[in-house]
C-alpha cells in the first residue's frame, strides 16, 4: 500500500513506542524524530525518493526541531541540559571521548559513500497522462475529444451479442499486436517490457483505465508516443501509433476489450 516498506515503518514506530514507555527526555525525542525521518525517507519506500528531495525535507525538519526546542526557556534547558552534563561531568568522560571520535568517523563515511555511489543514467520526470489535443484526425475523420465515446460501448446493454463480437475482435487485435509490451494479463509486463523505458502502462491498475475517458484512450492508441506533447517524452516511449496498422473499428474494439478484460468502465464524458 502506498509503496511503503512496511517492516521499516513498523520498526520505527516500535522504537517510538519504547521511547514513550520509558518516558524519554526531550533531547532523545528530538534526535529520534530526526533520525527516524531520515531512515523513513531512505528505507521506508519501495521506490526511494530522490536524495535531493529527502535532503530538503530533512533540512526543514531540522529547522522545525530547533524552533521547537527553543520555543520556551524550559524546553531549551531540557534539551541542552543532557548535552552540558555529558561535557562537564567526569563520569561521562569516556562517552564524550567516544562521541568525539564517532561523529567525525560518521561524517567521513558519509562522504566516502557519496563518492562511491555507482553512476546512474540521468533520470527525468515524465507526465504519464498529459492533456490530449482538443481534436484529432484519424483515418481522415475528425474526432472531437470532448464528445467522442467508444461507439460500441452501448451495445453492452443494447445488444450483448454484437458487443461480444466487438470484444472478440478486440481480443484478436490485442493478442496480435499489444501483448509483447502490455503483457498477456495486461499487467504492463509483456515479454519485451524489460527493454522499454518508460515501461508499458499497466491496465490492471486502478490508476490507469478507470480514470481515463475512452476518447483519451482512443487518442493514445491512434497516435501512440509520437502524438504525445513534450511533457510525455514522446522520444522515449515505444507505444506505436496504431493508425498505421489498424482500422478505426479495430482501434475502438481493442479499446473496448482492454476495459472489459479488467472489469473497468471508461470515465464518463464531462467528468474531469
Amino acid at each position: 500500500m502506498l509503496g511503503l516498506n512496511l517492516p521499516v515503518v513498523i520498526v520505527l514506530a516500535a522504537i517510538g513506542g519504547v521511547l514513550a514507555w520509558r518516558r524519554a527526555n526531550t533531547l532523545t525525542w528530538l534526535l529520534y524524530t530526526w533520525v527516524a525521518l531520515w531512515a523513513f525517507f531512505k528505507y521506508g519506500f519501495a521506490v526511494p525518493i530522490p536524495q535531493s528531495v529527502a535532503t530538503i525535507y530533512l533540512g526543514i525538519t531540522g529547522l522545525a526541531l530547533v524552533c521547537f526546542a527553543s520555543s520556551s526557556r524550559e524546553r531549551l534547558s531540557e534539551t541542552v541540559q543532557p548535552i552540558v552534563r555529558l561535557i562537564l561531568e567526569p563520569r561521562y568522560r569516556l562517552a564524550l571521548a567516544g562521541l568525539l571520535v564517532a561523529l567525525p568517523a560518521l561524517a567521513a563515511y558519509n562522504v566516502y559513500a557519496d563518492l562511491n555511489v555507482p553512476l546512474e543514467a540521468p533520470g527525468f520526470g515524465r507526465e504519464v497522462h498529459p492533456p490530449p489535443p482538443t481534436e484529432m484526425t484519424v483515418h481522415d475523420e475528425t474526432v472531437d475529444m470532448a464528445t467522442a465515446e467508444n461507439p460500441y460501448l452501448h451495445y453492452k446493454h443494447d445488444d450483448p451479442e454484437l458487443y461480444g463480437e466487438h470484444l472478440e475482435n478486440g481480443r484478436r487485435v490485442y493478442y496480435e499486436n499489444c501483448f509483447w509490451c502490455h503483457g498477456d494479463g495486461m499487467g504492463g509486463d509483456g515479454m519485451f517490457a524489460h527493454g522499454l523505458n518508460p515501461v508499458p502502462s499497466n491496465f490492471n491498475d486502478v490508476g490507469t483505465l478507470p480514470i481515463l475517458q475512452s476518447s483519451f484512450v482512443h487518442w493514445r492508441i491512434a497516435k501512440g508516443a509520437p502524438g504525445l506533447p513534450g511533457a510525455g517524452t514522446p522520444w522515449d516511449s515505444m507505444m506505436p501509433a496504431w493508425e498505421k496498422f489498424l482500422t478505426t473499428e479495430e482501434m475502438w474494439d481493442v479499446n473496448l476489450f482492454i476495459y472489459d478484460f479488467n472489469g473497468y468502465e471508461p470515465r464518463a464524458l464531462g467528468q474531469h
Binding site: L99, L100, L103, P104, A105, L106, A107, A108, N110, V111, Y112, L115
Partner: peptide, 15 residues
Amino acid sequence: FPIVRAAIIVLLLEL
C-alpha cells in the same frame, strides 16, 4: 582529501 576534510571539520566543531 574530501573524506579527511569532513572528519576534521566535524571534530573541530565538536571541540
